[in-house]
Design a protein around this nucleic acid. Structure first.
Lengths: 227, 227
DNA sequence: ACAAAAGTGTTGGTACTACACCCATGT
DNA sequence: ACATGGGTGTAGTACCAACACTTTTGT
């Protein structure tokens, strides 16, 4: 118990659930696997933790390597350790989730056959409609990881201001409402949403308007800029 | 990236923060380490995950082996993976926390030089007064793990009914209030606490009284008996 | 002029806080 | 009888949900 036997050693990986909101829907970045096991199946971006880095660092590294993203919101989600979760080797996965705004997605997201997929979660069930309704639709236990990540951001959104991670620096109140609706999966009353958000002091109005096909919309920014 | 090199393998351990409430205070079970590193220092009970078990199973096994506890509330907390957290080998620790009622603590808790220590957390700082105020007072990064566990149960207690895990099946309203006060670290108004708890439907009164030195107190039990 | 999204207040109900006195029992 | 913990209600405030119309712009 005080020394580590080789047999006690286990592969440690990170998997990152990268979310964005686009087109009024929650989206997740998936990569097509290029190797066995689960070759050609869609999976969460991930990889092994190196001997000299923490899991947090490994997750950041994955984020940069697989999605070209630096400095985005990233938090640990849960550790998945079923001995059978990888059919070949014993691998424990420390799962993370990241939130990215559309405007930080450049051409990078085309790297390594990876794409954004819409995530639906109407009646409790979390689904990736493009991949069919039958579970599992992802490699390994990534369906479970995705489901846990969706539940986490839903719960967290209600009491911590993480919504702005999914928005550009300046945004309209309608845009932030759409983010909330996409994450929570249900419509929200416009007047209640706006008055609550403004009273909370999380946002401040700026002297600019988003101009478009109709009446221009006032722009806002978050008061606490993190990172 | 598709096969695991020996150099990618890392020791995977679990550490369990076992809480109880006694004497109006939150208490944590610590074991004295019998080996290097940190020999003779107090530490959270823990051990390596075996090749054929999940981290959850390893945590349950530790709970039984180190504290004689079976079937108690146990949840994953966070995974600690700083490469320097163990000065000798690379070990990632999946931390858990457990909640136990005093009445389930038998003579078992004397095993392997382990004892309960009071945990204080008045002004945000989490401290084990008996071990002094200077940090670190525990082995490895166990101070950080303990702190994270205290924050977790404080947050969770406010919106999920986990308080009854720290109580015997039947209890008085004063007893459950003392549990809340011990965990949250501040006094609570008696009338507000009672009316809120009763209105929530979490408890049901039973036809029995706790008799003692003064007026007998009505006993209650939780409506949802888990496990 | 019209289509489309922006913007704006009130009302009723519910939940939370603060607060002080009488009751039942053992000694 | 008294000391000790058990038990109870109300009033003010803050938050939440439901709800519909006017304004501004581009076409």
């Amino acid at each position: 118990m005080n020394t580590i036997e080789p047999s006690d050693r286990i592969g440690v990986a990170v998997d990152v659930v990268i979310f964005t909101v686009d087109d009024g829907h929650l989206q997740v970045l998936l990569s097509r696997r290029e190797h066995e096991p689960f070759e050609d199946r869609w999976a969460l971006p991930g990889g092994f933790v190196r001997p000299d880095e923490s899991a947090d660092q490994a997750a950041e590294r994955e984020l940069t390597a697989k999605a070209g993203l630096v400095g985005v919101f990233l938090e640990q989600l849960y550790t998945f350790s079923d001995p059978a979760r990888d059919p070949r080797n014993r691998v424990v996965s420390v799962a993370y989730y990241a939130l990215v705004s559309r405007d930080r997605l450049g051409a990078q997201a085309g790297l390594r056959e990876s794409r954004w997929f819409r995530v639906d979660h109407g009646a409790g069930e979390v689904q990736v409609p493009e991949l069919g309704l039958a579970k599992p639709c992802l490699a390994f236990d990534h369906d479970r990881i995705l489901e846990a990540a969706v539940h986490r951001i839903q719960g967290k959104l209600e009491y911590v201001p993480i919504g702005f991670q999914l928005l550009p620096q300046r945004f309209t109140l309608t845009e932030i409402q759409q983010v909330y609706e996409a994450v929570l999966g249900h419509p929200i009353d416009k007047r209640n949403f706006r008055s609550k958000l403004l009273k909370s002091g999380q946002v401040r109005e700026v002297d600019a308007y988003r101009t478009g096909a109709h009446r221009p919309a006032r722009l806002y920014e978050f008061t606490r800029r993190t990172f």
